[in-house]
Each structure stands twice: as C-alpha cells, then as structure tokens.
Design a protein around this nucleic acid. Structure first.
Length: 534
RNA sequence: GCCCUCGUAGCUCAGGGGAUAGAGCACCGGCCUCCGGAGCCGGGUGCGUAGGUUCGAAUCCUACCGGGGGCACCA
C-alpha cells in the first residue's frame, strides 16, 4: 500500500535528520490536486518538540526524499506552513487497480482491525404491540449497515432485537384485539390503529389474544425488516428473564456489589454514587420491578453471552434514560465504555408537501411497511442512510418515490447497471477481456480514468473511518461520488467503440471492473442492491 | 433550570484540527453517427453570534442565540 511506503520513507528521513517520528505518521490525499497526490504534516507536528522551524525541517525531509525517491514518487515539495507534498506517477493508481480486481468484492477494503471481537448491536427494539412505524426504518437501516461495516472491519457483529413483551402495553394490545374481534370499541387507553381490526379478523376464536397477538406482531416486524434486508440473529424476550430468574439474579448481583438499598418499601439503586442527581427505584413498593431492572438484567445477559462490546441504537427521546442504564452496567463491575449508546434523531415524514403527524393514539401511524410499498426497499434504505444519524431527517415520500434526479438511489444504481451494460456489449461484439497480466494498464491516463481509481483507492480508509465513527452515511457519500465519477468517465471515454484501440479497450475493461467492485462493496455495506439493469 | 443534539450555498445535506469549504436539487445556458440522455459539461459575494486554545479552527473549549429531544416508584 502506497501510504505505508510513504510513511516508512518519512520515518527514515526523520531519523536521518535526528527528529523523533510520531507513532502515527499522518498522510492524506489533499482535496486540492495541486497540493499533490499525498501530503503529510509530520514536519508541522514534530517541529515544535524538536525545536525546529517547520518549513526548514520539511525542506530537509523533502531533500532526502527527492534524492532517493520511494516507488511511484515523481516529486516531493514543501508547501504552506510546512507540508510535505508527494506528487506521484499514475502508476500508483494502476497498482490500485490491480489490487482491487485481485482482491475482489470479498477481499478489497476488508480489515482485521476488529480481530474478531464479538459486538452485540441492538436496534429497532419496541413494544410488540404493532407494526414498525416509518421512523423505525432509520434505526433498521442504520443498525444493519453498522453491522455490515463492523463485519468488514473485522469484528463479529451480532444483530439483536429486544422485545418488551412484559407489562401493561401488552395487556392493552390484547384487550384491543379482543374488543375488535367482538365488534366492540377498543379501551380508552388501547390501540386504535387500523391494523388491530385487520389482525382481529385473522385471529381464531379460541386463540389467546395476548399470545396470538404477540406472534402476529413478531411475524409482521420480521417480515417488514426482512424486506429491507435486515435479519436478526437474536430476538430477545424480556419475559424470558422472568422465567429464567435472571431479573432476580441481577438484583442479587447488584446487592452483592453493594449499590442497592431498601427504603420506603421500595428497592433503590444508588446511582448518585456514579454522578446521577438522585437514586433510582429498581423495585416499586408494590413489588413490581421498574423498567430499569429488566434492562440492566438484559445487558448483563449480553455480557454473560460473551459479547465484549455492546451497542444500543435508540431514539433521541431515550436520552434521559441513557445514563441510568450505563450506571447499572457499571454497578455490575463493567467498564462503562463497553456499552455504547447511539442516540438517533427523528424522522419527519412528508407526503403531498405536508408533514404527516404520527400519533399512535389516534391510529394515524404510517408503517414502515407502507413506506416500503411506496418507494421500494432500495430507495428506502439509501434515503435513511443519506444523512448522519445525529441530524433529524425529513423523509419526503413523494420525492423518494419519484424516479427523478432528486433521488440518488437511481443515480448510483444506474452506474452499476451501465457497467453491466458494457459487459453485455462486449459479449455481443465478441470482445473478450484478457488476463490482467496481459493488459497494459499504463494506457489509463485520462483524467476521468484516474478519478475513478483515486476514489476506489480511498475505500479501505473510508471503511475504517465509517466503522470507527459509527457513520454508515459516509459510505453513502462515497458511493455517490464514485457513481458520479463513473458517469463522467462513461460519457467521455468509450470502452468499446470504433475509435478505441483494442489495447485501450482491454485496460478500460479492467478499470470498469475495478469501479464495479467498488460500487458493489459500497452498495452492499448500505444494504442496497446492485442491479445489472434497470 | 439542568442534560443531549443540530445550526455550512435559495433548498436538502457532506466535510468534524490543515493550505483557495464541497455535492445533489432548484434556476439559466450548452451537449446525442457508437457502450442506456434515468446521463454529461458550464454558471456560486455560504460555516448562527462573541470570545478562547493552536503555527493553523467550519472542525476543539466557553458563553450566548435559534431548532429538535429529554429530565417519573411510565416503558
């Protein structure tokens, strides 16, 4: 990898001038092309400590590297306050091409940073009292793509859905189902949604409304998320912890850690020891646990199952609760950093130019399933992953559905379809792609061609960063950029045509393959299909 | 009152210590003898305000202003 070569060269040069190198030599591809292909700030970073002037230091380094240039390096320059800029021969990009097509979809931009660490990612979890609403799609797309990134970065992610299947809401849901079944109005606090009537009609007369309804919800949720390409490894039931005694055991565990006391007929967790404003109740004076205790028990269970890192994806409305759960985990003796809670901002749904008010009580809920019906799974997923999870999102159904340019999913998929089209044309015209070793990649000198390779060269770092920052939307940004570059290439550079020399066709066929691999990896990370035709 | 999060182009958003801040949409004007025009090219007085840290701040810190969300023996 070119960057490692450049870093080694810089390290050697620093040693020659007697300056201690930093542990991590920073190299980046500057935004501006005239700043070179790669740039390093080592001189700026080390100058102060070494008591040197950054520009002078950079100049000495550049001199050394100019006299004995590393492979692919055409020139080394000093610029600005003391950057060391490398200008490379195009051959470094041709090497990128070779690496991409040799490693392929499975191997390129795959790392072992995670070293197989088991990471439990919990997302979308709800009360099993109805379908997933439209906003839930954001957590589904985010959580699943995060898992795909973790997997590609070498971790062993585990997708988990927590079912709050114990408590009042389940009772109300069951009562609502039964009432509809009997043609009665649902209870005041019950569920008014249309789906309750529909499901009640399906329910056999002898069914237990609670158990039957529970299964019906689980099926609906799994089907809907499955349509988005989201499949869980574990559906974890809160009730199962009552049956197994895990909740009692957790309480005892907390007592053993000395963070629990009894007062006013209730059982309290001494959260003030960990910075909370007031202590929190674990078991109410009526003997029922609050939601805190089962949640602590649940996370204790995850650790007991061997996960070294836990990630929870929650809506921003759970913010106030985050600290309590982290304290609970800490009180059990875990490092609080082992539990990572990601708060996602909400989605506003627009339809017909107006905001769709989501009200569970009145039953005006737009389900995720309906959204998928309207825009399709690919458009839904890509749209949910268009923006950072930290910003609230406006999901305009009409715009996402329109197969127009304001919909990036078509733009990106079109690039992949065009690549497949080139393959079809090659087949029709009897053009066969020769083995890579027999092809002269040095013919790839057009700016459009090099732009594609520069983009593909960034993918390994991009995967690493997007994973570490828990930011799948960075993959979306990258894929859109690569697609744009490909469209530009496609327009200006024919792969197969009357004016194109056969040797250039060969080189471009491999370039197209490299672009295909990049797009396929990116789209896979997003969980969006890569169609051969549209 | 306290906590979290966001404020970047007309609109939707990237960029989250580096050198002249980007993309899409919208708007205006150009491009089709050949791989899909669902495309390509050209057009831009924008980082909420005020301080601070730094060789360097859209990025980090503090305060303030504005949007969203939270602060239960509810889940």
């Amino acid at each position: 990898m070119i960057r490692d070569d450049l870093a080694d060269a810089l390290r050697a040069a620093l040693a020659r001038v007697g300056v201690d190198a930093p542990d991590d030599i920073h190299l980046e591809q500057p935004a501006r092309r005239d700043h070179g292909d790669w740039s390093s700030n080592v001189a700026l970073v080390t100058a102060r400590k070494a008591g040197r002037n950054p520009r002078e230091l950079a100049t000495e380094i550049a001199k050394i590297l100019t006299d004995e240039p590393p492979q692919h390096v055409a020139s080394v320059e000093v610029a600005g306050p003391g950057f060391v800029n490398f200008r490379l021969h195009d051959s470094w990009l041709h090497d990128v091409l070779t690496a991409v097509v040799e490693e392929g979809e499975a191997g390129y931009a795959r790392h072992d940073d995670g070293a197989g660490v088991k990471v439990n990612v919990e997302f979308v979890s709800t009360n099993p009292t109805g379908p997933v609403h439209a906003g839930g799609g954001r957590w589904a797309a985010y959580g699943d793509s995060l898992c795909r990134l973790l997997e590609r970065d070498g971790f062993a992610p585990h997708r988990e859905f927590y079912l709050n299947d114990r408590g009042v809401q389940m009772q109300l849901f069951a009562q609502s189902l039964l009432a509809r079944k009997q043609g009665q109005p649902v209870p005041d606090e019950g569920y008014q949604g249309e789906y309750v009537s529909e499901w009640a009609a399906e329910m056999p007369d002898d069914a237990d409304p609670l158990e039957w309804g529970y299964e019906r919800v689980k099926k609906d949720v799994a089907d809907t998320l499955g349509r988005l390409g989201v499949h869980y490894d574990t559906w974890f039931s809160e009730r199962s912890m009552v049956a197994s005694g895990a909740i009692e055991a957790t309480l005892q565990d907390l007592r053993d850690h000395g963070v629990v006391y009894d007062a006013d007929g209730a059982v309290w967790l001494r959260t003030t020891d960990f910075g909370d404003d007031k202590d929190r109740v674990l078991v109410k004076s009526d003997g029922e646990p609050t939601y805190v205790l089962p949640d602590i028990a649940y996370h204790r269970d995850k650790f007991n199952r061997g996960f070294q890192q836990l990630i929870d994806v929650w809506g921003a409305d759970h913010h106030g609760y985050m600290q309590r759960l982290k304290i609970g985990v800490q009180a059990l003796g875990h490092d609080p950093d082992e539990l990572e809670i990601i708060l996602g901002q909400f989605v506003t749904l627009m339809r017909g130019g107006e905001e769709v008010k989501l009200s569970k009580r009145s039953g005006t809920v737009v389900t995720l399933s309906e959204v998928i019906d309207e825009v399709g799974p690919d458009a839904a997923r890509l749209t949910f992953l268009l923006q950072s999870i930290d910003t609230k999102q406006v999901f305009d159904i009409d715009k996402v559905r329109s197969q127009a340019m304001e919909n990036p999913v078509f733009y990106v998929q079109m690039a992949h379809a065009r690549i497949a089209g080139i393959g079809r044309t090659a087949t029709e015209q009897g053009v066969e792609r020769l083995p890579l070793a027999d092809v002269d990649l040095s013919l790839l000198t057009h700016e459009r061609e090099l732009e594609i390779l520069r983009s593909v060269a960034e993918l390994p770092d991009l995967v690493r960063n997007a994973c570490a920052e828990r930011a799948p939307h960075k993959v979306t940004t990258w894929v859109r950029d690569l697609a744009g570059r490909f469209h530009g290439f496609y327009h200006d550079c024919y792969v197969i045509g009357t004016d194109v020399p056969p040797e250039l066709t060969q080189a471009r066929l491999w370039l197209v393959e490299a672009a295909r691999v990049g797009l396929a990896i990116g789209l896979d990370l997003l969980g969006v299909s890569a169609p051969d035709s549209m």
